[in-house]
């Protein structure tokens, strides 16, 4: 029996290592999101509203072009357009852009817009105080809707970036989400149900709503 023992310890260590690497594979999923969130890599932008801080100075001498791309995913038949393809803003200035969607189909559908900013280096400087992409859109057959985006370009945007492109892709999520779950947003960490996030989400929705009101008053 003496001969068997070294095998037993070696094999159990190796089996543990195998299981550990299997779990590590899954751990890479949230790690990837955290990494992208921190660094703004991959054009990922924050999924929550930017909380306004006081004291943005508008830089009147600089102009940044912001382009809007509206795409729909392959299976999505909604019409989706921005009111302008491209606008020029001064860094620090609060800007409102309206997007329109039409559901031309014969059924009630739910949509989710997923944003992406390029160049990805500029992603963290595009501050969205209110965005339809924080929510899901639910439309009756033939219905249309105007959706608002409120954003600022951070005055600290590096000098060599003169154009930011904000691309939205609209996904049909009617089949994956219950139709009435409009308050929920998809989980930040892909793959896991978003139920635990909903409280947090409704809070941030309230905050962004309050800010919108405050800002509207101030305008």
């Amino acid at each position: 029996m003496k001969d068997q023992n070294p095998h037993k310890t070696t094999v159990s260590k190796l089996v543990l290592a195998t299981l550990g690497m299997f779990l590590f594979g899954f751990l890479l999923v949230p790690l990837y999101d955290v990494f992208c969130d921190i660094t703004g890599l991959n054009g990922k932008v924050s999924n929550t509203a930017y909380v306004e801080k006081e004291g943005f100075t508008i830089d009147p001498n600089r102009k940044v072009t912001v382009q809007f791309l509206t795409n729909t995913n392959a299976n999505m038949n909604w019409l989706f357009e921005a009111e302008a393809r491209s606008i020029q803003v001064h860094p620090g200035e609060l800007t409102r852009v309206s997007f329109s969607v039409v559901n031309p189909s014969l059924k009630r559908m739910t949509a989710q817009a997923v944003p992406s900013v390029s160049p990805s280096e500029g992603a963290e400087y595009l501050l969205k105080t209110q965005c339809f992409c924080f929510e899901q859109q639910e439309l009756n057959p033939g219905a249309s809707q105007q959706m608002t985006l409120l954003f600022r370009v951070d005055p600290q945007l590096p000098d060599h970036i003169s154009t930011l492109t904000l691309a939205y892709t609209l996904f049909d999520i009617s089949s994956t989400r219950p139709v009435s779950s409009i308050a929920e947003r998809p989980g930040t960490y892909s793959g896991f149900p978003a139920a635990t996030d909903s409280l947090f989400t409704s809070q941030s929705l309230l905050i962004s709503h309050a800010q919108t009101l405050r800002l509207a008053g101030g305008y």
Binding site: L28, V29, Y32, N47, N73, T176, P186, G187, F192
Partner: peptide
Amino acid sequence: GTSFFDAGGGGDPVLFQHL
């Protein structure tokens, strides 16, 4: 019904390539 790699559900197809 998960969305590890489905952008519509909050996932990311590029994540697939990294993994």
